[in-house]
Design a protein around this nucleic acid. Sequence first.
DNA 1: CCTCCACAGGAACTGATGGCGT
DNA 2: ACGCCATCAGTTCCTGTGGAGG
Length: 400
Amino acid sequence: MSDPIDRLLDAAESGKSIIKNREILHFTYIPNTILHRNSEQEQVTQSLLPILKQSRPSNLLVYGKPGTGKTLVVKKVISKIQDRVEKSNFPIKLVYSNSKEETTLYGLLVSLGRQLSLTDKELPTTGLAISEVFKRILNKINNNKFNAIFVIDEIDYLAQLVSKTGKDILYQLTRANERLTNGSLTLVGISNDLTFKEKLDPRVISSLGEEEIVFTNYNVEQIKKILEERIHESFIENSVEEPALNLCAALAGGEHGDARRAIDLLRVAGELAERQQLDKVSVEQVREASQKIEENKEETSLKSFPLHEKLIILAIMKANGSSTGEIYSSYKNLCKIVGRDELTQRRITQMLSEIELSGIINGRLIHQGIHGRTKKFKLTISSELIKKTFKDDLTLQDIV
DNA sequence: CCTCCACAGGAACTGATGGCGT
DNA sequence: ACGCCATCAGTTCCTGTGGAGG
């Protein structure tokens, strides 16, 4: 009689592994050989070229849907330039920040500053006026004669923040060079949204959009090629069946040509096959993987909702396909049961649209003539999944 | 053709939090 | 000790609206 844990461990140790290099299966890993986009790489390099001649390159705007390799290409080019220039005593500072991850203007600026090695003392994480933070960053560049390249990913989010707060940070960033006597600042903006430029201040457009590069979507053929390369590097030979590969490419290519998703799918399918002690990845594992990824995503977003959002989701679950009013009164009941103060209807509408953004529910605006206007909400996931995920939540236990 | 429902969703505000400079 | 600043969750007040029913 063997211990189940030992049995699994034994199997894992002795069992053959069809994945030979796990790291390569993660998208962030960039082996130099595996990266297409040759013409885009060239374009990015071209526009940043002046830095080699020790002058400031134009600001750059990069467009492309998710998973088209924009960020990878930009980072790769800059780090190569950095390598070459480091020796010539002309310090380039690559600063990367993602405006979706930094939710506030302040946070974004601080993350930029930190990468210019401003310390806690020099740049506290809170308490300062935004203009003060900006000034300190510029001072740092000036004093150290940095040639900073700010790569701002998902710059459309930053543009939103800017318009919400009325602080004209983007404009100041693009014109920062006028305030610098030493060093320089180059801005590289990356955006998923091809139309976002229209929403910008025209003064910003003229200086930010000095150069523009568009990354087109991958088509299914290209994705397939990328996957083939990854498979070659990371799986042992002949362990991914042709139809499985095709399905991977088709599933990911069907939407936006998202290479990241395709590789994710491949990785999870490979891991599943290994866990099932198979020596080949077949269509079945890809299907399973796609479902598993989907479910995981839903589960984590369910868990991350604050209490009131969870209550709302439960209220929708109780009466699927109901209007805002019905959901609200149902929600008020739930609040009474768990003994919490209820929020106003206005807040609930807002929360509903926030939840809708996450894709867990689906709202449809309908007009009922004299019975007014409502939005009807439906769950897009099974109520079992909700019950399962909320069961561990102490305050919600009785309702579920 | 008009009315009036039942909300949607924008804008401005409040109060709490946390931390700065002086 | 004081005023100031940014941010967040939430509130108050508001204007807008497609079409069934009169």
